[in-house]
């Protein structure tokens, strides 16, 4: 495994390096927990790694409260997300996903931007962000910013809308409008509880008013399709219903709507049949526990 490394220390240097490397093969490295494993398996090529680990600009490295929600820099680590009290009280789906990601050693360095850009259908934090219907703030090498919903970010297994001259700068999570209570959690099913890549994951973020009526629902599914899926019709189905008194037939109908988004494969971790059964049961468990 051999490659060159360039280490920008600020946004300006980063954009220049993206620009000058347009004709070369380059990759971004941040936490390296995915990239190094991938590069170890590849034959040596004339590769340049743009090392983001020494970039210190707040816009890439901070969690900040903004007028319409929270902005998280793409270099914020899973560990920092898991410890953020602001995120825990507003978006516990995200902090729970961060806590369940891999191990302490990995969480210490793995970044939220990396979890998104690696575009795995099993990405834990990415799944939570789809449930939260976050927006991705993408910079191109000219410094132009474009904002796209995370639901449009993934185009397939390990592919995204990012162009070669673009970098994911930050993520914005919208405010919890008109909420009385927040039901927000990340359910991860694996064969063991530690260091596990999920067999099925379900992220939900549901807001209710003072009468327990559901006013907002975001539900995302991981590891059951080529990309993380927002189960839109299942979310819409919940609107106007009472969170605490869904009847068994409504819960069943909700679960069936969730399953419409699943097209799982059988692989070394689980069979397609098992994934489907588990997903249906996990979906019901939101309202049954």
């Amino acid at each position: 495994m051999k490659f060159n490394v360039v280490s920008p220390e600020n946004t300006k240097e980063l954009l220049e390096l993206i620009s000058v490397n347009q004709d070369r093969y380059f990759r971004f490295g941040a936490g390296y927990t995915d990239l190094l494993i991938e590069l170890k398996k590849q034959p040596d090529e004339d590769l340049t790694v743009i090392n983001l680990a020494q970039l210190t600009d707040d816009i890439f490295t901070a969690i900040s409260k903004i007028a319409d929600g929270f902005r998280i820099g793409s270099l914020v680590t899973a560990k920092r997300i898991s410890l953020s009290k602001d995120l825990q009280s507003n978006y516990s789906v995200l902090t729970e996903a961060a806590k369940k990601l891999a191990s302490g050693q990995v969480r210490q360095v793995a970044t939220i931007g990396g979890n998104i850009c690696t575009a795995s259908p099993a990405g834990d934090m990415a799944c939570a962000l789809v449930a939260l219907q976050a927006n991705c703030e993408i910079l191109n090498s000219n410094g132009t910013l474009r904002i796209i919903p995370i639901t449009d970010f993934f185009t397939g297994v390990r592919t995204t809308v990012l162009q070669k001259d673009e970098v994911l700068r930050s993520i914005v999570i919208p405010s919890n409008n008109r909420k009385n209570k927040i039901y927000s959690n990340f359910i991860k099913i694996g064969t063991r509880r530690a260091m596990e890549c999920s067999i099925v994951s379900l992220a939900y973020h549901i807001l209710t008013d003072e009468k327990s009526i559901i006013t907002h629902a975001g539900i995302a599914l991981g590891s059951v399709a080529p990309t993380i899926m927002l189960a839109k019709s299942a979310c819409d189905y919940l609107l106007g219903k009472s969170f605490s008194s869904l009847n068994p037939s409504e819960i069943k109908e909700f679960s069936q709507k969730i399953l419409e988004y699943a097209s799982p494969i059988s692989d070394i971790r689980a069979s397609a049949w098992y994934r489907t059964e588990v997903l249906g049961n996990v979906a019901k468990s939101i309202f049954e526990n």
Binding site: V5, L36, G104, Q108
Partner: peptide, 18 residues
């Protein structure tokens, strides 16, 4: 596992220059 600035990391997945 080693400690970098007091925090446990996997040294097999950490670039030495960092």
């Amino acid at each position: 596992t080693v400690l970098v600035n007091g925090e446990a990391v996997n040294s097999c997945l950490y670039l030495a220059i960092n």
